[in-house]
């Protein structure tokens, strides 16, 4: 059976890839050691009987907070979507290629 409370370097490498962290091999070794420690201290969660318990997404129930479908007619004149970046071209944001 899989031990959920252990993380190996391969898994840390996989996570580094999907979360775009560019970790070095040294960092991966360091993090997997730290995290194994942490996970070991989390293992006690297995003791808790959760049968029939609902997942609490929020501390209090938060329901049906909606917006009416009205489009803002006027834009704030000061609003410039491109003001926070140098990577732009014309009215477009500029970003990296896909492949």
């Amino acid at each position: 059976m899989k031990d959920y409370w252990k993380i190996d370097e391969d898994l840390v490498r996989h996570i580094s890839l999907i979360s775009k962290l560019n970790l070095t091999n040294e960092e991966m070794t360091g993090y997997s050691k730290d995290l194994n420690d942490v996970l070991e201290s989390f293992r006690i969660l297995e003791e808790v009987d959760i049968t029939g318990v609902d997942a609490a997404f929020h501390p209090l129930s938060v329901e049906n907070a909606f917006r009416e479908d009205t489009a803002s007619k006027e834009k704030d004149n000061a609003w410039d979507p491109l003001s926070a970046t140098e990577n732009k071209e014309g009215d477009y944001y500029k970003g990296p290629k896909i492949i």
């Binding site: 962290l21 926070a84 970046t85 944001y93 970003g95 990296p96």
Partner: peptide
Amino acid sequence: GIRYGIEKQISGNYDEYFS
């Protein structure tokens, strides 16, 4: 590194640039 926050000159693919 796009839209806001620290950024570099765009180079490479998105995987490389974001990382």
